[in-house]
């Protein structure tokens, strides 16, 4: 028989969830509502006047082939960032999990980059790979490779992906390591006695048992790639060369805070909001089915 908590007081449960609800209302629903409202207007930068334009901001955006192209750029960027940061983190976590001596030091070092702000991470990587003065570019040149992300879109994309993923590896590492340590050693030992190799044990036991962690990190990383990477893009490429690294959230920032076009910027935020909403629903409906808790 299941034990259930029953509240006799009718108001107490509401009171208990009220703080959380309030925070969500003030910090999510209110600004989101403002964005939706603003996306229907054409305001001037100073807020002196505004005109209602209905869905015109959306039409203006969706008719623009450059805006539509940035969906593709965002998809490539987010996939690469998520895959890179999660696979490297998992690899490092598996290795760190096996370390017996000095594991604390390893872990601390691996978690370190998480403390670096995205903009700083961006500047750091930019300096290393600046075509004229970067040490990375210098070594590549010695190897006979002419690095120039200022004009080469693929290199620019590679650089912003690495800079964005690098930071996130630490976060993923932390969760993967915790997940690995929660797997009962007896199961793995039993498989080892049965003669399963390390990789077989990993794929048939560890990876499935790790799936709740992996799923959680997948959601978190996609959200990170969509929303929190604009500082990296801003400092390294500013969306260039051409529009090769202009992801949706960077355009929200550039149009709103540099171009002062608040109507369009708000409309883009709304589009982004729905896009990530849909993505999260897909993740929970289709991928979560394969997760074993």
């Amino acid at each position: 028989m299941q034990k259930r908590v029953v509240f006799n007081n009718r108001t107490l449960p509401y009171l208990l969830v009220a703080p959380q609800l309030l925070v969500t209302l003030v910090f999510f629903f209110w600004p989101a509502g403002q964005a939706i409202r603003q996306s229907l207007y054409l305001p001037d930068p100073f807020g002196l006047s505004e005109q209602f334009v209905g869905l015109e901001n959306f039409r203006f955006l969706l008719e623009d082939p450059y805006y539509r192209a940035s969906f593709g750029t965002t998809a490539i960027f987010s996939t690469l960032v998520t895959l890179t940061s999660m696979s490297i983190a998992l690899f490092l976590a598996v290795l760190a999990d096996r370390v017996i001596k000095g594991s604390g030091a390893y872990r601390t070092l691996l978690i370190w980059p998480y403390a670096v702000a995205p903009a700083i991470a961006g500047v750091l990587w930019l300096f290393m790979f600046s075509p004229s003065i970067g040490i990375g570019a210098y070594y590549l040149k010695l190897l006979g490779y002419d690095w120039n992300h200022v004009l080469n879109g693929t290199e620019a994309m590679g650089l912003v992906v690495v800079a964005s993923a690098w930071k996130q590896i630490s976060y993923n590492f932390l969760f993967f390591l915790a997940g690995l340590q929660a797997i009962p050693k007896s199961v793995i030992e039993a498989a080892a006695i049965d003669g399963a190799t390390f990789w077989r044990r990993f794929w048939t036991i560890v990876f499935p048992l790790l799936s709740p962690t992996t799923f959680f990190l997948l959601v978190i990383n996609v959200v990170y790639a969509f929303f929190e990477t604009f500082a990296v893009i801003h400092t390294i490429t500013a969306g260039g060369p051409r529009q090769d690294t202009t992801i949706l959230v960077y355009k929200v920032f550039a149009d709103g805070f540099v171009g002062q076009d608040l109507g369009s910027s708000a409309a883009q935020s709304v589009i982004l909001l729905f896009l990530v909403g849909i993505l999260t629903v897909i993740q929970f409906r289709y991928i979560e089915r394969r997760v074993h808790y």
Binding site: Y66, L151, N152, G153, A238, G239, G240, P241, R242, Q243, A254, D255, V258, G259, Q260, D261
Partner: peptide
């Protein structure tokens, strides 16, 4: 008006010329 954005898109188009696209 919107000149900062216009310069931004000019930069994008010029880069397409410099890279030969």
């Amino acid at each position: 008006g919107s000149f900062d954005q216009i310069r931004g898109l000019i930069d994008e188009e010029l880069e397409a010329v410099w890279s030969g696209d």
